[in-house]
C-alpha cells in the first residue's frame, strides 16, 4: 500500500512523516516521532491515555488516522513546558499528588490543559464531567481533581498578575 507524506506542527515544530493510510496517529507519534508520552491503554477510545490536543481540541489519538492530522497543529504532553518551566497543570499534578504509576498522566495533563481553556474556573462537577474521557486506575481521581483546581487557581493568579 502506498505511503503518504504528511506534515504537521508538533509541539511548535514542523514535522514530516511518511505513513500508510491505516497508521494510527498514536503509533506514528510514538514510533516514528519518538514522542512516547502519549500512551495506549485500550485502543477503543475509552481510556484517554492517548489524548492529544489537535487544532485546539482534545482528541484520542488511538482513533485518528495519522493522515487525518496532515496540516494540523498538534500538542502532546511533551510540548506542555516548552521553555522548561512547568505548566500549571503539571505543577498541580505534583503538588496535589495527582499521579501514581504515571501511565494515564500525559493524557490527563493534556486534557486538563484544554479543559482549563474551555472553562477556566470549573466546579468539581465540571471537572469530573470535563475529564470523564480519561481513566485512571491508581488515584481514585480525587487528587487529580485537586490538581486541576490547583492549576485553575494558578492560571487565574497569573492572569491577574499579567493584567
Amino acid at each position: 500500500m502506498k505511503k503518504t507524506h504528511i506534515t504537521f506542527t508538533l509541539n511548535g515544530q514542523p514535522v514530516e512523516v511518511l505513513v500508510e493510510p491505516r497508521e494510527l496517529l498514536v503509533h506514528v507519534l510514538r514510533e516514528q516521532l519518538g514522542q512516547t508520552g502519549s500512551h495506549i491503554g485500550c485502543e477503543t477510545s475509552h481510556c484517554g491515555a492517548c489524548t492529544v490536543d489537535l487544532d485546539g481540541r482534545s482528541l484520542k489519538a488511538c482513533t485518528l488516522l495519522a493522515v487525518q492530522a496532515d496540516g494540523s497543529d498538534l500538542l502532546t504532553v511533551e510540548g506542555l513546558a516548552p521553555g522548561g518551566e512547568l505548566h500549571a497543570v503539571q505543577e498541580g499534578f505534583v503538588q496535589e499528588h495527582g499521579l501514581q504509576c504515571g501511565y494515564c498522566t500525559p493524557g490527563m495533563l493534556i486534557r486538563a490543559y484544554r479543559l482549563l481553556q474551555e472553562n477556566p474556573n470549573p466546579t468539581e462537577a465540571e471537572i469530573r464531567e470535563g475529564m470523564s474521557g480519561n481513566l485512571c486506575r491508581c488515584t481514585g481521581y480525587q487528587n487529580i481533581i485537586k490538581a486541576v483546581q490547583y492549576a485553575a487557581k494558578k492560571l487565574a493568579e497569573g492572569e491577574v498578575e499579567a493584567a
Binding site: S58, K60, T63, R111, L115, G133
Partner: peptide, 9 residues
C-alpha cells in the same frame, strides 16, 4: 453522548 474527546470528533 460519549465523552469530551469523542464529542470533539
Amino acid at each position: 453522548i460519549a465523552d469530551p474527546q469523542v464529542r470533539n470528533r
